[in-house]
Design a protein around this nucleic acid. Structure first.
Length: 803
DNA sequence: AGCACGCCGACT
DNA sequence: GTCGGCGTGCTC
């Protein structure tokens, strides 16, 4: 028997252990151990979980250094070669640990559960036995169960071999099983048994006859008892008589059984047809090619996706369909399920760990042909993929904002390349980066310029709020908007009002001294919540009562500033007491399914006005909406971020697209204090290409993406001075090691400098040559890891936010 | 992450 | 001398 060795990535997320370790495969495991399985291995003086990422016949290590694998945790690999390769790519792309990446790619249940047991093995003090062990000989414990001094005591006892600790690695992924019976296939035996039965044994005879008709089949107990009325006693007898054998079959919970009616294919217009043919042609040629599908709102991008998907299905391949956020796109999900029915798996954030695991199993077993999901669905264990779709590709939700900071768009492209298939990036307002790639011919550009069914784009009017406010009292509603709203109400048509709260909050301020109550942890202005009459910090969740007296000067003249949806709703009710308003924001849609319910209500005309934050800008399709009002277009322009104009343009275009989607023409009113800003004027003219050209010039002048790569290095420390000093060191080190053409900005305190009792600083790097910088950044991270203190450093490639 | 090892000051 | 504090380095 030849020896075998396995390369294992262990579940210890640190820089020093971020490498494969070599273990010996015990002889009895050689046949069953496969690449991509999880195992437990001894590591130091404990056991940890690990992933098999390589199998070899030899090792350079001396024999005595190699320890054997302890246990195999999976029956089949949880990761295939494709996903293992992907994890390599991601590790270098995101500066994250291999183990973190591997766990990110899998459902939560695959994370190991470490159960530790303390056991007394020698005489100990009564105090220890009574207090720490609650009078018992052994006790289960988790980190944090004991105080630091108790931990010290326990550690000491262990060194004296008076107590022992045992760590068991458990698997959270339990395959739910159901009791079933496997029938015998021995016809003669069964027939003998049937003949030998007493005439009174009617039930047994029924069962035997049934078995004879279904030889060697496996029946779930519940199903069996439904078909033939047999009691448990009879079944047990049958087991002892060896007619049948007890087994277990996997039970799959199905969270989505709601049946949907099949929806028919819609006819494509000439542009859609052209796009369809370009993409399906690429699929037929088995070639990797990204397509940028730039289609104005309402131009029927979805129908193109679905028909290409249909074509891909017919060739026996599967489809991966990414959307920005399932909760915000219920209409899209319904359409996909309507077309592809039970072969669809929907991965959304509302799933419990168990449900998510079940969906994952369904996909992995090949029961599913199309997977619809948000960011993390890009890791769906589909094989044989024939098409990947990234809808609303400009959305920032595709980028994960904490470690590992991966970008689902890039992963989609990676997987597309792996399978040599087309990847569709669709948007009405493509990200500048993608549009620029299309310009360079990296992506193939497909454009849809006509709305489906011949509907027209709405006319957009920009209202200068400076004038409105100079004429009258403070208000959120210009005269023009009031008139239009009244008009729609009179005609029985619907309106959508959006309050742009991006980077904006309503707060409380003292009229006499200007004091703003800030939360004690983050030092940020707290946001006013009128429903609970409290002030909340949106970053750490701190909550307190609205003060009636100024904490700084004692004045009672505390006043509300800014605008929350609640305040707008109140003003709206005052202006139009008879209007039925639905308010949609984070507070009213927190509950699962409440958003969908509200949208259905609006769709059924049970309300006249839908008032909401930017969550209403996406994907909603209501034919009777003829007026869209944007109450404050420019709050997103003031963000400390070079994407501010792009985000504003995208938001305005998206929300405008909600108006006039059917027969009736739509109208949009945009209230702003910056009516001349190009992001607003180009959005007004529905001119994406014009905006793209101007914004590219701005980016070029400022050395921003897509002309330069951007990397954000951020560090935090519990001590403000230390944070600043360490980051200055980092900056100095970078300046002396980087090429001359690398632009290094900072360090500077982050716009939100203090968060959760830590101080944040950032350095922004802008550069042209990626490979050289990657090497440098990798080294920076190594050094940071070794540095002492509680400095936390993270590297974010192409950050989507600088907040 | 854990855990051992080893160096140093404080103390029965 | 010995105990326990913490900094350093290793885990196939």
């Amino acid at each position: 028997m030849t020896k075998q060795y396995a390369q294992i990535i262990v579940d210890v997320p640190t820089m020093q252990t971020d490498q494969p370790y070599t273990y010996a495969v015990p002889e009895n495991m050689i046949d069953s151990l496969l690449l991509g399985m999880r195992v437990t291995v001894p590591f130091g003086r404990r056991n940890v979980m690990g992933f098999v990422v390589g199998l070899t016949a030899s090792t350079d290590l001396p024999e005595e250094q190699v320890r054997p694998i302890q246990q195999i945790l999976d029956l089949t690999p949880v990761l295939n070669t494709e996903l293992l390769n992907l994890s390599d790519y991601l590790a270098s792309e995101t500066f994250a640990f291999r183990i973190t990446i591997l766990q990110t790619m899998l459902p939560n249940v695959f994370k190991a559960n470490y159960e530790r047991t303390l056991r007394i093995i020698d005489e100990v003090d009564d105090d220890v036995r009574d207090r720490l062990f609650k009078g018992l000989d052994e006790i289960a414990f988790k980190t944090g169960d004991f105080t630091e001094s108790d931990m010290a005591t326990l550690l000491k006892l262990r060194r004296q071999h008076k107590i022992d600790v045992e760590v068991a690695v458990h698997d959270k992924a339990k395959i739910k099983t159901q009791l079933a019976y496997q029938f015998s296939d021995d016809v003669e035996f069964l027939e003998d048994e049937l003949r030998g039965l007493r005439s009174s044994a009617k039930k047994q005879a029924t069962l035997l006859q049934f078995i004879l008709c279904h030889l060697a089949e496996t029946w779930v107990k519940k199903d069996l008892q439904e078909v033939i009325d047999i009691s448990d006693a009879v079944l047990n007898q049958a087991v002892t008589k060896k007619w049948i054998m007890k087994t277990k079959v996997e039970l799959l919970r199905d969270p989505f059984h709601a049946e949907v009616k099949q929806t028919a294919l819609l006819e494509l217009n000439a542009q859609q047809q052209e796009a369809y043919e370009r993409i399906s042609g690429t699929f037929d040629a088995q070639r990797f090619q990204p397509f940028l599908l730039e289609g104005i709102t309402g131009s029927g991008k979805t129908e193109v996706y679905l028909q290409v998907a249909q074509h891909v299905f017919e060739q026996g391949k599967t489809v991966l369909f990414l959307v920005p956020e399932i909760a915000l796109t219920p209409q899209m999900v319904r359409r996909v399920k309507g077309r592809f029915g039970a072969q669809t798996a929907v991965l959304h954030s509302g799933l419990s760990d168990g449900e998510r695991y079940d969906e994952w199993r369904r996909i992995e077993r090949g029961d599913v042909k199309i997977v619809v999901g948000a960011r993390s669905a890009v890791f769906a264990p589909l094989t044989n993929i024939g098409l990947i779709i990234v809808d609303e590709e400009h959305e920032t939700t595709y980028k994960q904002s904490d470690n590992p900071r991966y970008d689902a768009r890039n992963i989609a492209l990676w997987r597309g390349q792996y399978y040599q298939i087309p990847v569709i990036l669709g948007s009405a307002t493509p990200s500048l980066e993608s549009r620029a790639r299309a310009q360079r011919g990296v992506y193939e550009l497909l454009t849809l310029t006509q709305r489906a069914g011949g509907a027209k784009l709405p006319s957009v009017n920009v209202i200068d709020m400076k004038e409105t406010l100079s004429r009258g009292p403070e208000t959120n509603f210009s005269e023009e908007l009031r008139i239009k709203l009244a008009d729609r109400l009179a005609k029985g048509e619907q309106s959508v009002l959006m309050l742009n709260r991006r980077g904006f909050s309503s707060f409380v301020m003292c009229r006499d001294c200007g004091y703003v109550p800030c939360d004690p942890n983050c030092n940020l202005a707290m946001t006013l919540h009128m429903d609970t009459h409290t002030l909340k910090c949106h970053y750490c969740g701190h909550e307190e009562k609205i003060p009636t007296v100024c904490a700084q000067c004692g004045s009672k003249r505390i006043r509300y500033y800014g605008t929350g949806t609640e305040k707008v709703e109140a003003e709206l009710q005052e202006l139009f007491p008879d209007a039925r308003v639905i308010r949609m924001d984070q507070d009213t849609t927190r509950k699962k399914g409440s958003m969908d319910k509200m949208l259905q209500k609006f769709g059924n005309h049970e309300a006249d006005i839908l008032l909401g934050t930017q969550m209403i800008a996406k994907g909603l399709d209501f034919p009777d909406v003829t007026l869209v009002g944007v109450l404050n277009a420019d709050t997103s322009l003031g963000l400390p971020d070079f994407h501010a104009s792009e985000r504003t343009f995208q938001l305005l275009t998206q929300v405008s697209g909600r108006a006039g989607r059917a027969k009736k023409p739509g109208e949009v009113l945009v209230q702003t204090f910056n009516p001349q800003h190009y992001a607003i004027t180009y959005a007004q003219n529905h001119d994406y290409e014009g905006f793209y050209r101007q914004e590219m010039a701005v980016r070029h002048a400022g050395n921003y993406a897509p002309y330069y790569y951007t990397v954000q290095i951020q560090a935090s420390h519990s001590d403000e001075n230390q944070a600043a000093i360490q980051m200055l060191k980092v900056a100095r080190w970078l300046r002396s090691h980087a090429e001359k053409d690398v632009i290094i900005l900072g360090p500077s305190p982050k716009p939100i400098a203090k968060m959760r009792k830590r101080y944040y600083f950032q350095i922004i790097l802008k550069f042209k040559k990626r490979n050289e910088m990657d090497t440098l950044l990798q080294e920076l991270q190594n050094r940071a890891q070794k540095a002492k203190g509680d400095l936390q450093l993270s590297i974010d490639r192409d950050p989507v936010s600088f907040m």
